[in-house]
Simulated scan of single mutants.
Amino acid sequence: MTNVNVSARKPFGKIAAYCFLIILSFACMVPFFWMISTSLKTKATTFQFPPQWIPADPQWANYVNAFSFAPFATYITNTLTIELFVIIGQVVSCTLVAYGFSRFRFRGREVLFMIMLATMLIPEQVTMIPTFLMFSKLNWVDTYLPLTVPAYFANPFFVFLMRQYLLTIPKDLDEAAKIDGANELQILWKVLVPVLRPSMTIIVVFTFTNVYNDFMGPLIYLNSPEKFTLAVGLANFVSSRGSEWNLLMAASTVVVVPLLLIYYFAQRNLIGGIASMGIKG
């Protein structure tokens, strides 16, 4: 009798859990639905009460008008240019550093690794002014160099993730490659890099999101309007046409599309990489 009651509770528990998750998902999607709905409204009907979720007369021209009032095409090009160089820098540098920490044995390796991890505890606000002064002395202000060059010095968090992943890969693969005459770089490139695709996907997705949403960096280092990124461009759009929320939501809808696309196409490797990420020391 007890077993029957327990087995009867399991389907009920699953149904309740799924219902709760569905309700929570809809609650999280409400701002996104409101953004799309507002992007298709007129200025007069933006804040009408009760809210009209499906506009009776969709204003598709809002998207055209939003892009005519601000050079969002230029902002997108600038952002994707920075994205390209930063992603390449993060993947290459983090892979090399993680490979060194996971495969090479040298004196002070663990101490250096702990020092690298400790740098993540330093707030960004503490280093903001010294970093700006350094780049100013190098005459890099109003260029993309301060936004891209630091990516080639490895991110401690990404190095930690990739190192933990490398520790789960048997060293027998390295030994077999050495027997065939491969050097360290050949082992990394031909043997380990194909296996590291899930962890590299995590780095690419997280880096893309961080750079895409970065507002403070471009705001500090970029002065020329033609060099602005999407985050700064949207902020300027708010300051210049803040009362036209329908146009702002139209621009925001277009801006959020690349983020949705990269998560959609990378979700299999992203979820698999996070699930298989080891915690081996």
Rank of each mutant, 00 (worst) to 15 (best):
N78R: 08
A98I: 01
K137V: 02
N3S: 12
K171A: 09
L40A: 03
G217E: 03
K227T: 10
Y18H: 11
G13L: 15
S68L: 14
S136M: 12
L248Q: 03
S37G: 13
G89N: 02
P55I: 05
A235W: 06
I76S: 09
V204D: 09
V30S: 07
T207I: 11
W34P: 05
L80Y: 14
I88F: 09
T119I: 03
S39A: 11
T131H: 11
P123L: 04
Q267P: 02
L84Q: 06
S93N: 07
S102N: 12
V238I: 10
M120S: 08
C94T: 12
Y18C: 09
L121M: 15
F69Y: 15
G233H: 05
L80Q: 11
N183I: 11
I87Y: 05
L40W: 00
L147M: 15
S240Y: 09
A44D: 12
G89K: 14
W245A: 01
I220R: 03
M277H: 01
L138F: 14
F106I: 05
N236E: 13
F153Q: 02
A16C: 10
F101D: 06
S68H: 15
F33E: 04
V256M: 14
T143N: 00
C19P: 00
P71N: 05
F33A: 14
P198S: 00
M1C: 13
Y264S: 13
N210F: 15
L80V: 15
M35E: 07
N5S: 14
P31V: 09
A44L: 14
N62T: 05
P31Q: 13
F160A: 01
A231R: 04
K190F: 14
F47W: 07
A251S: 10
V126P: 01
M35S: 10
F135G: 06
S224W: 00
E226I: 12
F32Q: 02
Y144I: 04
P156W: 12
M134S: 10
I220L: 11
A44E: 14
A154G: 06
